[in-house]
């Protein structure tokens, strides 16, 4: 649990922390979109440096970001190698049977690698600097127009925020039940698949029972506190769009112009 960096919030007070989560969410999606249009070496360099600068601005140590990449590193390397050997053109450096490494191949392998890394880094910037609940609010805001298509956006956002509340609880409980079962001589993560599944049953059942009890209590609480699905509510939390966020939008436009100018 402690090793998982993706989705974790690191409290802080950097400029990036202060930005409106709506802006950050849009920016990250936009940035990832742009990564697919970087066919020029200079563009790659600009975006790589930009990613690094943004990461530095969060004041979260680089090692945290690198830990975020680690679980995916084999997938990234696999995609990169695949890209290298399937792209031809330019000077050929190496050619044995079906294995061909060309100049273009190396270049597009490098681009693929960078794109993956940058995608992970920039999404990690978002989750490291934004409280999950603020992210939920941002998602709610962006999905709001879907209300007109009868999508229950309000309910979805409450569900998401309650789920956020309970994930740490659930992890805690799993840990407790596992320890209790271990104390009774249970061994986890050994034997064949069937044996492992069998070992999990005494773990899952108490968790399940507990979750049911909690869901029941929760439903009572929602009701006595006057929550009624489908009914209008006001919102205590407010996201505040600032001048910095507007500046951020300007940066987005500039990036667009730069990418276009290299592509014509």
């Amino acid at each position: 649990m402690n090793r998982l960096i993706i989705g974790r919030y690191f409290p802080g007070n950097s400029l990036i922390h202060q930005l409106d989560p709506r802006f950050k969410l849009i920016f990250v999606l936009y940035f990832i979109g742009l990564l697919f249009f970087l066919d020029h070496f200079f563009l790659q360099v600009i975006f790589f440096i930009l990613t690094l600068v943004i990461m530095m601005m969060t004041r979260v140590s680089l090692s945290i970001y690198i830990r975020g990449v680690r679980p995916l590193i084999w997938l990234i390397l696999f995609a990169t190698v695949l890209r290298i050997i399937t792209t031809r053109g330019g000077v050929v450096y190496f050619d044995v049977g079906f294995l061909t490494v060309s100049h273009f191949g190396l270049l597009s392998g490098l681009y693929t690698f960078l794109r993956f890394i940058e995608m992970i880094f920039i999404s990690t910037v978002l989750t490291l600097t934004t409280k999950p609940i603020d992210l939920t609010d941002a998602i709610y805001f962006l999905l709001k127009p879907l209300r007109y298509l009868y999508v229950p956006v309000e309910e979805l956002s409450l569900m998401l925020s309650i789920a956020l509340r309970f994930i740490p609880n659930l992890l805690d409980e799993t840990e407790k039940v596992m320890n209790a079962q271990r104390a009774r001589g249970m061994v986890f993560g050994e034997g064949n698949l069937l044996e492992q599944m069998r070992a999990l049953t005494p773990l899952v059942l108490p968790l399940f029972a507990h979750s049911l009890k909690r869901a029941e209590d929760m439903a009572d609480v929602l009701e006595v506190k006057g929550y009624k699905s489908g009914e209008k509510r006001t919102h205590y939390r407010a996201l505040i769009w600032g001048f910095k966020d507007t500046l951020g939008v300007v940066l987005m436009l500039v990036l667009m112009l730069v990418v276009i100018s290299f592509n014509i």
Partner: peptide
């Protein structure tokens, strides 16, 4: 208003 036994089952806000 009602408060039940287990507070952990009653928090809705983060």
């Amino acid at each position: 208003g009602v408060v039940f036994q287990n507070p952990d089952h009653q928090f809705i806000g983060t």
